[in-house]
Amino acid sequence: MKMKRGLFIGALLALFLCCFHIMNQHYDELSRYQYANDENRKIILEYMTTEDINYLIDRQYKPKEFMEYLGMSNFNIRYVDWYNYAKNVGEMDAASILELVDVMKDQMSFSTFKVYCSNYSLAQLKSFYTEENAFVHEQTLISDPSSVTGKIEENTTLFTYTPKDLVEVSGIPIVNQIQGEETIQLSQGAAEELVNMCNAAFEINEKTCGNMVVTTGYISFDTQEQLYEEAVLTYGIDDVFNHVAYPGQSIYQLGNVVRLVVASVETTNLKEMELSPQQLWLIEHAHEYGFEFVNDPAQPLEEFILQYHEDLKQNNEEGDETQ
């Protein structure tokens, strides 16, 4: 009796295993993926694990959103949104996009990644995150340069950031302090308001721009490298930062910072610790044009370093309307 029962249970177990094997052979992992078809089914099953497929089913990505990356090195279905956002930002081949995302995904959120992509080209990001550069070693790339005010922290860098709306400043006195450079560039808003401010400064002494000269505007990363290397040779490594900024850490790279210098004839008769008429005028009026001092306006200055903020200009205009 016990033997018959054992044989019966064994037969049931064998039948169960046989049925399970048959069912497993016919089980379709993509049955719940609404976009599965004869064209994509085989390749999806070939390159995706069960875990990946479950993620795909949960998100229901369309084949056009990921099929071009499938099978490539570094592909991960969990970062499809990153790949496609980068693809829509600018021209870069799929393999390079995957390489870039594979590095950046471990250092930031997707929302931060989008901020980077809005301020830097994919080529710049690829160069920073996947290539060697002595000037940015172990530094953090500033995600949103527009948020920088007054100073760039020592362990951060703008790398090769370039403002998208640079224009050449004209119509006001300009003497570029960088040898070989005759023109000066600024972001469009800063350039327009600088001209407006210079025109208004005529009231100081009835001289063009109040007898002030623009000597510095946008300075590129490449130019900073050149200036830094020249300064090291001239002044030595211990004294170099008294003359130039470290490449990637100059506020002039932001495109919204300008340096104004008063003509020497205007300062010869000033008493010690006396503020020039130009400085007093800028303290009172610069904010009306969206500019604020980067250096200390309370101290007598030979140069005025001003940074343009669109919000400051808008707030000033709103304040005028309410009065």
Rank of each mutant, 00 (worst) to 15 (best):
Y27L: 03
V115C: 06
D81Y: 07
L122F: 05
E51A: 14
W82Q: 03
E91D: 15
E51M: 06
L30K: 02
A94W: 02
Y55K: 12
F110L: 11
N54I: 06
V103R: 12
N133Q: 05
K105V: 15
E132H: 15
R59T: 10
Y129F: 15
K105R: 15
V89R: 11
A134V: 14
L122W: 05
H26C: 05
Y35V: 02
L45R: 08
R78Y: 13
Y79G: 03
M104L: 11
A123G: 12
M104H: 06
I53F: 04
K62Q: 14
Q25P: 00
E39S: 13
K42P: 00
M72Q: 14
K62G: 09
T130H: 01
I57R: 06
N54Y: 04
Y85C: 02
S109Y: 05
N84W: 00
E29G: 06
N24T: 08
L30W: 01
D93A: 07
E39P: 00
E132L: 12
L100R: 02
N74C: 10
D28C: 01
R78W: 05
S109G: 11
L56G: 02
Y83Q: 06
V103E: 13
R32S: 15
Q124T: 13
K64R: 13
Y27A: 06
G71D: 08
I53P: 02
L56Y: 03
T50K: 13
D106K: 14
L30F: 03
Q107A: 04
K64F: 15
E131Y: 00
N84D: 07
K42A: 14
D38K: 11
V89H: 02
Q124D: 15
N24M: 07
V89M: 12
S127K: 12
M104C: 10
I53S: 06
M92L: 14
T130R: 09
Y116F: 14
V101Q: 06
I97G: 03
L125N: 05
Y27V: 00
R32N: 15
E51V: 11
D81I: 09
F75D: 06
E46I: 01
R41F: 02
L125E: 03
Y120V: 08
S121I: 09
H26N: 15
R32C: 08
N76K: 14
F128T: 03
E99S: 13
A94C: 10
D106A: 11
E99F: 07
K126H: 15
K114V: 09
A86R: 03
